[in-house]
Design a protein around this nucleic acid. Structure first.
Lengths: 116, 116
DNA sequence: CCGAATCCTGTTTGATACTG
DNA sequence: CAGTATCAAACAGGATTCGG
C-alpha cells in the first residue's frame, strides 16, 4: 500500500477536490445537472432552459456526464425520435453539494457581484 | 424592477450557479482555497502543496481570487521579501460548500474513479 | 426534433527561463 | 522568495451545415 493519506490532511482534501473537479468542471456541467434536478428533460428543453449553450457543447457535455454515470440517456423510438435525460442516483447524490453551491453563489452575489 | 425571479425556480438556481462558477471555476481556484483553509501560506508553500501548478498560473489565480475578495495578500518587507496569503471572511464562507464538495469527491471516487 | 461532423477562433494552461 | 516574460500547446466554445 503506497503512502496512505489521512482523511484530515490537506493532501487528502486536495485529492478529493480534484476528483470532484474532474466531473463538475467547466461552464456547463453544473447548469445541466441543475436543470435535470428539476426533472427529466429532453435535449431541446435543456438547451432552452440554459439559454445560450450551443447544441455541440450540450451534446458533448451530456456525453461526458453520461460516461461518468451522472446522467442516463433514454431513447424513445417514437416519430420523431425523442430522447430523455435524467439523473442517476449518483447524479442525484450531488444535491447537498448543489444546494451549498447555490447558497454560496447567492451569498457571493450579494457581497460582491452586486457592488460592481 | 425587472422580471423578478423566484427562489425556487430552476432559473434562479441556474443564475446562482453561474455566480458561484464565476469565482470558483478553473482547475486551480478550489485547490488554492483548500490549501489556505489549512492556514495562511506563502507563495512557495502553496505551490509545493498543490504540487504541479506553474508559478504563472498560481500568480494569476491568486490575483483573481484577491480581486474577488476571497483572499488577501500581505507583504512583509523582510529580507528576503515574504508574502502571505490568507482567506477573507468571504473566503472562509466557502467552508460548508467545500466540505460538501470534498465529501462528494470522495463518494464519486469510490463509485467511479476506482473502477476504471 | 435531436443531434453528428466540420471548421475555425480565442482563451486557458503549461514549460521554461529570468528578475528584484 | 515571489513572482514576470515569453512562447507554444491544448482545449473550450461558436457557427454552420447536414442526416435520421
Amino acid at each position: 500500500m503506497a503512502k496512505a493519506i489521512k482523511k484530515e490532511t490537506c493532501q487528502y482534501r486536495l485529492i478529493a477536490g480534484k476528483d470532484a473537479m474532474e466531473v463538475l468542471q467547466g461552464k456547463w456541467r453544473i447548469p445541466i445537472i441543475i436543470s435535470l434536478t428539476d426533472g427529466d428533460k429532453r435535449f431541446g428543453e435543456i438547451q432552452r432552459e440554459i439559454g445560450n449553450i450551443s447544441p455541440k457543447m450540450l451534446s458533448q457535455e451530456l456525453k461526458a456526464l453520461e460516461e461518468n454515470k451522472i446522467i442516463t440517456r433514454t431513447l424513445y423510438d417514437s416519430m420523431p425520435v425523442t430522447v430523455e435525460y435524467s439523473l442517476t442516483p449518483l447524479g442525484r447524490s450531488t444535491d447537498k453539494l448543489l444546494e451549498e453551491f447555490l447558497k454560496w453563489g447567492t451569498h457571493f452575489r450579494n457581497e460582491i457581484v452586486g457592488n460592481r
